[in-house]
C-alpha cells in the first residue's frame, strides 16, 4: 500500500504533464483552432523533430549564455550578500536600493546594453545576470543578518572576531537560503537570456521564436517554448538535488 503510494507520488508530475498535453491536443482539435494561431501538441512535436538541428544549435546558445550570466549572478550575489549581510548598517542602507533595482523590468536594460555592447551574446549574458543576482543577494544577506544573538554571544565570550562569527556560524547558516535562491535564480536567468535574445540577438531560442513567429510558423515557436522550459526544469532539479546534498541538516524530518 505505502509502496504503491510512493510510486504514485513519483509518477504524479509525469501524469500531470501527460494530462496537460492531452487537454492541449483535444482542445485545439475540438475548437478547430488554426495552427498559425495555436498549434496542436502534435504539430509542435512535429516541428520539434523537423527543426531539431536549428533548435539544438539555438538552445545551446541560450544554454551557455544563461549559465555564464547565472555564474556571474552567483559570484556577485554571494559577495554582495555577504558584505550587506555582515553589517547592519549596510543592510539598512542597501536593501531599499536593491528592491528598487529589482523592480525595474530587466527588458528595459536591453536597449542600453545593446548601445554599450552591440547585439549578440553579451547583452543576453548581462540580462541573465541582472535578473538572477537579486534573489541570491537577498537570501545570503538575510541568512547572515538573522543570526541569533545568543549564538553570537557564545562565540564572542570566547574572544571571537566578527569574521569568526561570520565564517563559523553566519555562512554555514545562510547556506540553505543560498541554495534555495539558486533554484529561483537559474529559472530567472533563462527568462533574462530569452528576453534579451528576442530583441537583441541573431541567435538563441529567443531569436528563433521571434523569427519563426514573424513567419507564422507557430509550431516552431511553441517548440522553442517547450525547450526553454525543459532546460529550466532540468537545471532547477539539478540545483534542488544539490541543495538536498549540501544542506541536508536544514531539511531534516522531510524524508522520515
Amino acid at each position: 500500500m505505502t509502496k504503491n503510494n510512493r510510486l504514485i507520488e513519483r509518477l504524479a508530475p509525469w501524469i500531470a504533464m501527460v494530462a496537460l498535453v492531452i487537454i492541449w491536443e483535444v482542445t485545439v482539435r475540438a475548437f478547430d483552432v488554426p495552427s498559425f494561431i495555436f498549434p496542436s501538441a502534435l504539430e509542435t512535436a512535429q516541428a520539434l523533430v523537423t527543426y531539431s538541428g536549428p533548435i539544438a544549435m539555438h538552445s545551446w546558445q541560450t544554454f551557455w549564455t544563461t549559465l555564464i550570466g547565472f555564474g556571474l549572478g552567483v559570484a556577485v550575489g554571494l559577495v554582495l550578500g555577504f558584505i550587506i549581510g555582515s553589517s547592519r548598517f549596510l543592510y539598512n542602507a542597501c536593501y531599499p536600493l536593491l528592491v528598487g533595482f529589482n523592480a525595474i523590468p530587466k527588458v528595459a536594460f536591453v536597449p542600453i546594453l545593446v548601445v554599450w555592447f552591440g547585439i549578440g551574446s553579451v547583452p543576453a549574458i548581462l540580462t541573465a545576470f541582472l535578473i538572477c543576482f537579486f534573489p541570491i543577494v537577498v537570501n545570503v544577506a538575510t541568512g547572515l543578518a538573522t543570526l541569533e544573538p545568543e549564538m553570537e554571544d557564545v562565540l564572542r565570550v570566547l574572544g571571537a572576531r566578527r569574521m569568526d562569527v561570520l565564517l563559523k556560524v553566519g555562512l554555514p547558516r545562510s547556506l540553505p537560503y543560498f541554495f534555495a535562491s539558486l533554484k529561483v535564480a537559474i529559472t530567472l536567468a533563462f527568462v533574462g537570456t530569452v528576453v534579451s535574445e528576442t530583441v537583441a540577438s541573431n541567435q538563441g531560442i529567443g531569436y528563433l521564436m521571434m523569427s519563426a513567429g514573424s513567419q507564422m510558423r507557430m509550431g516552431l515557436v511553441f517548440a522553442g517554448l517547450l525547450v526553454i522550459s525543459a532546460m529550466a526544469m532540468v537545471m532547477y532539479e539539478l540545483f534542488a538535488q544539490l541543495e538536498k546534498r549540501m544542506t541536508g541538516w536544514a531539511h531534516r524530518g522531510q524524508n522520515r
Binding site: E148, E150, M151, D153, V154, L155, V157, L158, G159, A160, D164, K168, V169, P172, R173, L175, T247, W249, A250, R252
Partner: peptide, 28 residues
C-alpha cells in the same frame, strides 16, 4: 569564560563532537 544558555544553541550542521570542539577553533 565559557557560556551556556537556556537554549542549547548547537550548530545543526555540526555533529555533537564538532560542536563541542568549536571553542577550540576560536580561543587563543
Amino acid at each position: 569564560s565559557g557560556m551556556a544558555f537556556q537554549n542549547a544553541n548547537l550548530l545543526p550542521w555540526r555533529t555533537t563532537l564538532d560542536n563541542v570542539l568549536l571553542p577550540l577553533e576560536i580561543v587563543k
